[in-house]
């Protein structure tokens, strides 16, 4: 009989049953056996493998101390003597996705074992780690848990057994950019002509070699005479007037707010709060300047460091917000800014 593979599972504080955002600062820890989603993994593994341990780390801890987190987690993981590491799935949770990607690529690199995670295509962890980790593509939310778990387990077992993978599309993972040799039915020339004919007819076709897309924005020249500029403030940290008058969503924001700050020198906690649902709001609600630095910018405006602070600030919630929405907000905001002669912007993000 084939031996049972040993699996370790990485979770954040939420899925690891430690707590919510108030526990996001929790440092790495280990638990015997399966926890939370690990139980589902165990079902999929059946008798082929056993989830022997679970390692957990708070999302904020991991992202604020990535090196310490990776080192400590690696020690815990090593202790279980695993063949496979599974992480997440993180769906569209950015901090969690980054942690999952980082620990998978670190563990594969250091221990040479199989590691697989799962994320939604827009998760920030995808761009950072898709080349170094196997990432099963998941739905944006928890509703995709079962499907993601099944695919993660199947891929992990294939990798652990050294079986040949078919293609990223077939296996359900996000392409790592690795080219694999295979025998095709037709010669390259015939395939190219087929593709060309489809293109001419306007039919769908799949390229065999994707060109990378670089979306970089050219660097703008510096501004020397700060004392003559109008500066605008934007935040994705959700600082809004109390009561959130524009009803900006706590996650997956579909809107932004524009708030008049003429004559406002202080963001008083009884007048402003955060609408962001992705971090512990305690500190921002105690003092909104911890997210939007209006107090010191006003001070510097009065000192003449800049000529003028733009009379409005803009806020949205950057929490699972789609790239398309963020882009649209910025394109609308920038119209105001150009019309009103703003020369520089500071964006603060949590």
């Amino acid at each position: 009989m084939e031996r049972k593979y040993r699996v370790v599972h990485y979770l954040n504080q939420f899925f690891g049953r430690i707590g919510g955002e108030d526990k996001a600062g929790t440092g790495p820890l280990g638990r015997e056996g399966a926890v939370g989603p690990g139980l589902l993994f165990q079902e999929f593994f059946g008798h082929d493998a056993e989830v022997v341990g679970t390692v957990i780390c708070g999302d904020n801890y991991f992202n604020e101390h990535p090196q310490e987190a990776k080192d400590k987690l690696l020690e815990f993981i090593k202790g279980y003597g695993p063949d496979i590491l599974l992480a997440g799935p993180a769906f569209n949770a950015g901090r969690y996705g980054i942690a999952c990607g980082a620990i998978c690529s670190h563990v594969s690199d250091q221990l040479g074992i199989t590691s697989v995670t799962g994320m939604f295509s827009e998760n920030a962890g995808v761009e950072l780690y898709r080349k170094s980790a196997y990432i099963i593509e998941t739905k944006a939310s928890l509703t995709g848990m079962k499907d993601a778990s099944g695919k993660m387990v199947t891929l992990a077992m294939k990798l652990a057994r050294g079986e040949r993978l078919i293609s990223p599309e077939e296996e359900g993972y996000i392409p790592k950019g690795v080219r694999m040799n295979y025998s095709a039915d037709k010669k390259g020339a015939a395939r190219a002509v087929d593709m060309l004919l489809k293109k001419l007819k306007g039919e769908p076709f799949t390229t065999e070699y994707c060109m990378p897309v670089f979306d970089r924005v050219e660097v703008l020249p510096p501004i020397d005479n700060l004392s003559e500029i109008t500066l605008a403030l934007i935040t994705s940290g959700g600082i809004v007037p109390r009561g959130n008058p524009d009803h900006i969503e706590a996650s997956s924001a579909k809107r932004y707010g524009k708030y008049d700050i003429q004559g406002v020198d202080q963001l008083r906690p009884d007048e402003y709060e955060t609408a962001h649902g992705g971090y512990d709001p305690t500190y921002a609600n105690e003092d909104p300047h911890r997210v939007l630095p209006l107090d010191v910018i006003r001070e510097m405006e009065q000192e003449g460091v800049i000529d003028r602070l733009y009379p409005y600030y803009y806020a949205t919630v950057g929490n699972g917000t789609s790239v398309a929405n963020a882009k649209e907000f910025a394109q609308k905001i920038v119209k105001d800014l150009i019309r009103d002669g703003v020369q520089a912007v500071i964006i603060s993000s949590t």
Binding site: E64, I98, L128, L220, S236, V334, A344, V345, S348
Partner: peptide, 25 residues
């Protein structure tokens, strides 16, 4: 957002905690 505003010609500075995200974006 930082990228889109800069693309439109207004210099943008991003103050953020998770630097790798800002770099990737």
């Amino acid at each position: 957002m930082a990228k889109e505003i800069e693309r439109a010609g207004i210099l943008t500075v991003h103050i953020c905690t998770i630097v790798p995200i800002s770099k990737t974006v």
